[in-house]
Write a protein that binds this DNA or RNA. Structure first.
Lengths: 218, 218, 218, 218
DNA sequence: CATGAATGAGGATTCATTCAT
DNA sequence: TATGAATGAATCCTCATTCAT
């Protein structure tokens, strides 16, 4: 049975729509992606989209945040595992970076500026903030553990450091020339962050004192 | 000439238009700013915009990159001045951050993601890339000098470090809760970066060696 | 058969649909009532509607004209009963008015202007005209008897007077402020009509003569 | 100059749009008139409509109520003129009827049921009610004067009688077969109304007493 | 008989751009 | 230069209708 003719196999419709939207948004700017294109790419009728999403906004939002929960879950798992801080950080970067790379221009990771700028409607704003906070908190957990173990500086809140790390990852992917070999070497990025975020050697001057003025570059 | 009657003093029309666009873009998402609004806010006729700009794109581009040259110039000046690396970095952050804060959501600083995503037309793409490279290069110059003086690690290209720093500043402004007191303290950000980018103490094991893989957080 | 499980008792489906449509049309303008709403309100699937009605038009038509046959029948019965003209008219008004009040905005009574304007397709047009003529004729019968008995003026066709009466009833319900106490007193309306439609006192000048042109208001 | 080529003479654009809308609404049901059609018929671009009207609703409303103010003014003038009640009523009917005939199916006169059903939005509702009250009041003024002169029954409020008269006129136009010769003779309608609304001969039984039960039809 | 996911033609509305003045 | 009325292509969204189950 099921001679639906030219229909695709019974892949769940909503999934197909999301996939098409993802695909298109990775190529064209948000602004230029129309629902007709999404529908066409997904091989469904235009109206079908509205059976699965409230709105164009809703579709975009879900597209942008797809898989985000999983990412947060994974990062959270790293935090909870007993893994040493250094390895944990590397693993976090790998996960976040992988997620980011997979969703390329979607920028679903932290700021998705296109998205965050589009959604100024309060409803979306808060939806978005919640998602973002989820990831920052997960990363902050890893750092908190590092602080507890005396490995991460505790003169800055974990959330602040988490934001910095995420910002670095973002830059790494967005702004770095894709052909730079270093870009493939996440370890370098982790190293810079770890050193910047490390607790200063206990013997030397206190961290918060005035190292800003003193150490390396006088 | 110019008996424009009840018009404002002969403030240059183009300047007024740019100012209005800046104002509006700082509030609404790009997507929601219309030329009618800009014209109205600037107190000029809609057609007048086309006397000063090719296009809506052109207007947006000029709006986004307004003052960017000045910023690059200032950063370059810091690099050329003999100021010590540490102070130079702080000053760079102050400048960039100030520019960023002033143009808030315009994101004219490094990537202006909205912008970069909007402009896929080759013409704009390259126009944009050039602007961005200008700033990265200026920051990289400061870092290069630091490397020459043995204060900045030289296992990573200066441009990579420059990108990281700019990414951190961006995060600092975009993602950090505006009410966090730390956000006002740029020195903290500089400190994290400087330590991360510092040349490792000569005594210990070489930084790039393999701590990444082994030790937790030294 | 009919192992419908948790369905309602075998209330006739079509009746439920009509009831829901009536309910909805009494609240929202025709224009805003969708088949989804009707189906939902009736607790049936959307497709089911098409098992009982040709069309949305058909559903609307049947909804609008529901009970109309009964009304015509009742009015006809009054005409055939030997009841005196005055009482008969009052009774007619009561029936028509009651029907009208029950179906309020449906306006199924005489013109259902919404309906008459909607249905320009010849099929519906004639269907509608037939229904309307039925009622006018029934009312006209009552008036004809009154003419035969010398109580109703016969210088105007019974159908014309019937239309006038129906128009008055319509206005009474539609245009009169629902809070006006008089609105509840149909007798007043009947009185106006009866006096206007009464045969003029034999003694005075003939009604149709020319009072219209000359005397103010006798 | 002004070789606008295929443009129409400088008839005011808004007027042209209203005229086209009127024309179309007189043929097709409200529901089927699209803005494209209106624009095309008016020989203007689709967007131009939005320069002159807020909305489709606004366009329709203005179309329906076009000339209504004039009508009310004329009726008011009749009331204020010293004309005898009978002639005044005839004149009122002539005016209202003329307005009605001119706007045919638009029903702008009193109830414009299509319109009144479409506009359930509070804004339009009240806009509509105000217009309607204007006309009823104007007609009621004429009747009030008749009451003061003892020519019109005063056991019913003037507004109620005004509504009845307007309802009769509406029926006359809408429901009567256009070919009935009587339809052209408004005097007949006025006569029915005048007799129904006349003060009963002072000599006979009091009007409010029980004439309903007694006179003409026993 | 009953269902409801899928469809896609159709319509309201926006807005960058032009051009006669 | 400056203007702003006019334009119409482009887009989001609705909803009557179908059909595989």
């Amino acid at each position: 049975m099921s001679l639906r003719g030219n229909r695709m196999p019974p892949t769940d419709t909503k999934v197909r729509i999301l996939a098409s939207a993802t695909e298109l948004l990775a190529r064209r700017p948000l602004h230029d992606v129309t629902l007709d294109q999404v529908a066409q790419a997904a091989g469904v009728g235009k109206g079908t989209i509205y059976l699965h999403f409230d709105d164009k906004d809703d579709l975009l939002f879900q597209t942008f945040t797809q898989g985000f929960d999983d990412l947060c879950e994974q990062v959270g798992a790293i935090a909870r595992s007993g893994v040493a801080c250094g390895q944990a950080l590397e693993e976090v970067c790998r996960q976040v970076s992988g997620h980011f790379r997979r969703r390329r221009r979607l920028l679903a990771m932290t700021g998705a500026e296109d998205a965050s700028m589009r959604w100024q409607a309060p409803k979306m704003q808060s939806r978005w903030r919640m998602m973002r906070k989820q990831l920052v908190d997960a990363v902050a957990q890893v750092l908190s553990r590092g602080m507890g173990q005396g490995e991460i500086r505790d003169d800055l809140p974990a959330e602040v450091l988490a934001n910095i790390l995420l910002g670095m990852i973002r830059s790494w992917h967005r702004d770095l020339d894709p052909d730079t070999p270093i870009r493939k070497n996440l370890a370098a990025l982790v190293d810079v962050f770890r050193r910047g975020a490390a607790r200063a050697p206990a013997t030397d001057a206190p961290l918060a004192a005035e190292p800003v003025r003193t150490s390396p570059c006088p």
